[in-house]
Design a protein around this nucleic acid. Structure first.
Lengths: 222, 222, 222, 222
DNA sequence: CATGAATGAGGTTTCATTCAT
DNA sequence: GATGAATGAAACCTCATTCAT
């Protein structure tokens, strides 16, 4: 019944194009909700603010998304759809294995840096033990291509004798994500407890080098 | 004005020992608040539930901690105090460098596993950009010994020719924490999107091996 | 302006006959509204559910009935029209007086049993002090034949020396209705407070005997 | 947990006696809620109006009664408690059987006349199929003494050869209640459809005579 | 004849916090 | 040191109704 559309682009829709356009309106709501949920978490998010930011009546959100929780799920699915889409654009399959992995590290880092809302949304969802995503039918099928892709890269690396044996592509992906995610997601507390600005440009580029060394140090045969 | 005590132990205080005991009452509140904030986040936590769980009147929480936000800060400080305390018990300085690092990885993993509330609390605090910790005077001094300790281990490893050059102890610590933290903190969403129970005993032990290989693969000279 | 039709039959209209048929559409709406108002009362009824149940767009209800309140009035008028119509089919004028009264008791009981929505609708209307019916022009003329009919029966009974003197046909009708109505309408609370299933088949037939005895005990000369 | 008190008297409490008095406050809320639910039904009742009428903060109603539905249940229990209490004051056991029954008819009539909210509340509860009362633990025990009392009266009447055999006291009570209840509860619609003011003083006293004749006509041996 | 999109007002309920003892 | 009573603000959500096609 709920025919929710995917928001492909984040920039806001000009006001003069709004009204009586179901598709656009839903995209607008999704965009606004993404920002609000990212800033304030599920509990802290305010439907009022989402409506105002989307330039629609509060009631309309319920018309299209039924409840705050289902809206949150839509936002999560949309966020996953976007990053998986971007990953497809990397064409890892056409790169040599070592370059492919380095490229994935760089991409993940860059994507998290440029889309911090993705991190916050996931944090919120984890706080709720993935309660919403578990109700999603689309989420698994959205993520399996990525694993397959990475499995191919690892296979090629091993066949060429470059990579070590016994590498689980899921573990590898989680490790790459870990290194990028934690540093950025926990940047605020880390900077505070270590008394050091970990978001400064130098700090960021140092981190990228470090992470690449860690991942390649693990993967490459000694 | 606020004389806040540290809750050293998590097990609940027997009922017969309660009442008219400032120190114990505060510990009880801290314990209950830690659970509640960990389960529900800052926004989702309910003062009512904390009071009920601690077995005290709601008003008393305000008497000791002034506000929800300051209570949250106390909970955070208490959580950091406990993990730094536990780390001290590792005696990394008396182990050879490689063993020391392996030990730290295992310890971190084990500690996060056994104290999942620590992860959730940090997630919440990061959602709020470390707003609370930044107001803490105790937090930095609590964390600097750890960095010093790790610096010593790395130095010893490099002097003995075992470890690679150019290793920043803070980066190393963050990397170790990343690998453990992300896997556990995001376990729910990861399990869901990959359709694989990442909290099963085998999965957990595989992860520990993988992480150790990653860290040592990076540190050890080729 | 509002050309409202009477829904003579309650069974739903087959889907293939719907659409672009003013008369049928209005009957469908009336039918659905009757159910909804009976189930939920005036306040609890939802225009949304009525529309869904009738298989029409919400807007169409307003097109035909103008507002929820006027729709409710139409439902009431329709309900009265149906019961008065059924009463006409009894042909009380062709029965001997005692049989005629017994027949009326049985009929009233049976009709209320088979058309419980009639009771609920009246309850709702009484909650609102007959506010809607008072605006109806058709309602009185619909009910006067019944009184006339009953007056004739009572007259015949008295002239034959069978019935007692001083019987007001309106009082008699109200009494018959009372006995049937209250037992059925308040069945749920009565069953609960007396801890006894007053809707069980035996209970129902016992009630019918009792009521007949009460009415005839009153009417028949000692 | 909810320690709800019974409102013995309906007149409002003087303002100067209010505040910081749990018992009185709860009575006030009950009183106001009774009026509001009686006037508007469960669905139409407004918590806001109840709070205003009781002179308390809206939030306080939830503090004491938890929800609108539980408040409604309390109101119902209170209403039953009051009428059963009043019935006890009749001392039917000390009257001769015929007088006792006449007295009960008169009392019931009078009580319904003077406490019309009782009728409306029951109507509302029946609309909801006794959903609330079914959750009450007190309701049955509150009503059983009445049945016992009436059983004794009937027994005495039968032993003295005055009353007919085969009289079920529950049926008898329901019949008495029916006659009074329906006339008053449905007065508005009846007056409208019969075009006759059934609430006029003469009409009321005529009805009382009629009902007494009906009940005694049934009970007394021919 | 018929409909999907959109809304303003207001509903119940929740919450951190304070008052008075 | 400790508590039950009480509150104002605001949250999510609902609803009858209207707009524009």
């Amino acid at each position: 019944m709920l025919n929710i559309l995917t928001a492909d682009s984040l920039p806001p829709v000009p006001v003069e194009m709004r009204g009586r356009n179901a598709e656009r309106t839903q995209q607008e709501i999704l965009r606004a909700a993404t920002q609000e949920f990212a800033n304030a978490g599920l509990g802290g998010a305010r439907m009022e603010r989402i409506a105002a930011q989307a330039g629609v009546n509060k009631r309309l959100i319920y018309y299209y998304f039924e409840s705050k929780e289902l809206l949150f799920l839509s936002v999560l699915e949309d966020a996953y759809a976007r990053i998986r889409d971007a990953e497809k654009g990397l064409h890892l399959d056409s790169l040599d294995p070592a370059t492919a992995v380095r490229r994935l590290v760089e991409f993940t880092w860059q994507y998290y840096l440029e889309n911090p809302e993705f991190l916050t949304l996931l944090n919120s969802e984890n706080l709720h033990k993935a309660r919403h995503l578990q109700r999603s039918s689309r989420i698994q099928e959205m993520n399996s291509p990525l694993v397959q892709l990475l499995r191919d890269v690892v296979d090629r690396g091993q066949r060429s004798g470059l990579f070590r044996e016994g590498v689980d592509p899921v573990q590898l992906y989680i490790t790459i994500a870990s290194l990028c995610y934690f540093y950025l997601s926990n940047n605020a507390t880390l900077s505070t407890i270590f008394g050091r600005d970990l978001f400064a440009p130098t700090a960021l580029s140092e981190r990228l080098s470090h992470m690449t060394e860690v991942v390649m140090g693990y993967l490459l045969r000694k």
